[in-house]
Structure formats: C-alpha cells, structure tokens
C-alpha cells in the first residue's frame, strides 16, 4: 500500500481519538436529556489537569485519572445548574465552558509561571504491534488510549441499549415525567449521565496533552468540543455512527495536513470548516426528522 495512505490512516485514528471519547461523553448527556455545552471547557480542563497531575507526579496514568475526576466534577457542576436548579441548559453549559477555560489558564499561570520554554512531559509511547510489517506496522502503531477509545464504543452501546441503567437514561431523555411516575429518580439518572459524560470529555481532552503533544498550550482544544456536538447530531445519537463521524472528521483533518505538506494550493481552511458545514447540511436534510432525544433541553421540575 502507498506510504501516503498508510500514514493517512494512522493519523486519522490519532486525530479521531479525543473526538471519540468526548463525543461519547456528550452522547451520554444528550441521551439523558441534557445538551452539555460545557464540553469545550471540560475537554480544556481535562487537558490541563491531566498535564499538570502527570508533570507533578511523573505518572501519566495518575494524570489520566486526575483528568477523569476533573471531568466528573465538571459534570456535577452542570448537574447542579441544569438538573437540580433547572437553569437554561445553553447558558449554563456555555458559562461552564467559559469558567473552566479561564480557570485552567489562571491555574496554569500560577503553577508553571510565565516561562519562555513551555514545560513538557514524556508523553505516552506508541504501541509496537506488527512493527516489522511496512503496512500494518505504521497503522497499528497507536497509543493505547486510541485502542481504548475504539473498545469503549461497543461498551457504551451495550450500556445504553442492553442494560437497565441505559434504558433508564434513554427514558429520562425521552419522557422524564413517565420515568418519574415509574418510580425512577430523574435527577439522579441525569446527574450520573453528566458525570460519566464529563469524565469521557476530560479524558478526550487529556489525550492531547498526555499522548499527542506532551505539553499544554492555550489553544489546545480549539473548538474540538463544538466538533463533538456536531458529531453527536451527525451520528444521530448512536455510538456506532458517532465513530464513523469521528473517523470521517479525523480523516479530513489528516488529509488536509498532508495535502498542505505536499504543497497543494487549495485553501486548507475549507477542510477545517468542512465538518461544521456538513453538520449544518445534515441538520437541514434531517430537518424535522432528526431524532433528538425528546426531552433534550427541557429541565425537569418535579411537582
């Protein structure tokens, strides 16, 4: 196989990894009826906390764990506002994103100061599988987290569609009144969905610092959270279709970079804007038929 294509496939998987984690996180929240616009900020927080914890303890796994915990806390904050208090989900989610980004930047400056050379960590190593094979070698030379991301997809599918917990989550996202009448605690379920979702978003963000870059920069998430919001819609709130969307986006981004390196004179910005444009077109085509969880955006108030 052509070296170009092999490199492209490998890069696609790398670019898609954080998106898979975070999109699955958003999927959990939305299936429970909460549009979590805190995703961009939660990914940012995860990238920052993961990096900071890893650089302080010297352990990347502690970094990953710390990121997940920070994501859970972000989910709890979203739950307090949008589930417990019933605040408008758009404004509270966006507020959380603004808060978490500024809080991360503030803390970064306090902890690491304003050094000219940005601090860095030894990031995760690429796994060596089939390393002798010229085609499979580069494709399978990925971070363990990439494999975990792909492995999590069937797990999420199983939880959502084959367990009572998942059934309840979906029920809460479709018809909270009926779910409540059946004796299920709507608040608790939405809160747990937000906690799981937050953890996944933060892990997605931390992949970028702990695996891809090994350092933290201020533009580190750069709208990836909003891409994930699109991917959930694009994937019609289904884990498997979400994977396809993430791979498609990853593929386009990776292709864009490679074409740029080859000196192609096409404006690369078109490729970067493409996922957003495609989502809007997809929404237009799906229109009324887009299968939004019925109770999405509706705060539930127990009478």
């Amino acid at each position: 196989m052509d070296e170009f294509i092999v490199g492209l496939i490998a890069a696609t998987l790398r670019v898609a990894t954080p998106l898979i984690f975070a999109t699955l996180g958003e999927l959990f929240c939305e299936r429970a009826g909460v549009l979590n616009l805190g995703i961009e900020g939660t990914m940012f927080l995860g990238a920052f906390v993961g990096f900071t914890a890893a650089s302080m303890t010297g352990s990347l796994w502690i970094g990953l764990l710390a990121a997940a915990i920070s994501g859970i806390l972000s989910g709890l904050l979203m739950s307090l506002l949008s589930v417990r208090l019933g605040v408008n989900q758009h404004v509270s989610g966006l507020g959380i994103t603004l808060l978490l980004i500024s809080l991360s930047l503030f803390s970064y400056r306090i902890i690491f100061g304003e050094s000219k050379i940005p601090p860095s960590i030894n990031s995760f190593d690429l796994l060596k599988i089939f390393s002798d094979n010229p085609v499979l070698g580069p494709i399978f030379s990925q971070y363990l987290l990439t494999y975990i991301a792909i492995a999590i997809i069937p797990v999420v599918w199983y939880i959502l569609f084959r367990t009572t917990f998942g059934l309840n989550i979906r029920a809460v996202g479709e018809n909270p009144e009926a779910t409540d009448a059946a004796g299920i605690n709507v608040y608790k379920l939405r809160t747990s969905a937000l906690m799981i979702g937050g953890a996944l978003m933060a892990i997605g963000g931390s992949f970028i610092t702990l695996a891809q870059l090994g350092s933290f920069t201020f533009g580190i998430i750069a709208g990836r959270g909003w891409v994930c919001i699109s991917l959930v819609i694009f994937g019609n709130w289904h884990p498997i279709k979400v994977l396809l969307g993430a791979l498609l986006f990853g593929g386009v981004s990776a292709l864009q970079l490679r074409l740029q390196l080859k000196g192609l004179k096409l404006p690369y910005e078109i490729f970067l804007a493409l996922p957003y444009i495609v989502t809007i077109i997809a929404l237009t085509i799906a229109g009324r038929n887009a299968s939004y969880p019925a109770a999405l955006l509706k705060p539930y108030k127990r009478e």
Binding site: L37, I280, L283, T284
Partner: peptide
C-alpha cells in the same frame, strides 16, 4: 425546519 438554533449558531461561529 425547527432545527435547534443553539447548535447551528455555534457552528456558524466556527
């Protein structure tokens, strides 16, 4: 088409 404006306006920003 009753498409949620929050998502579309957000995408237009990007």
């Amino acid at each position: 088409l009753k498409v949620d404006e929050v998502v579309t306006t957000l995408l237009m920003n990007s």
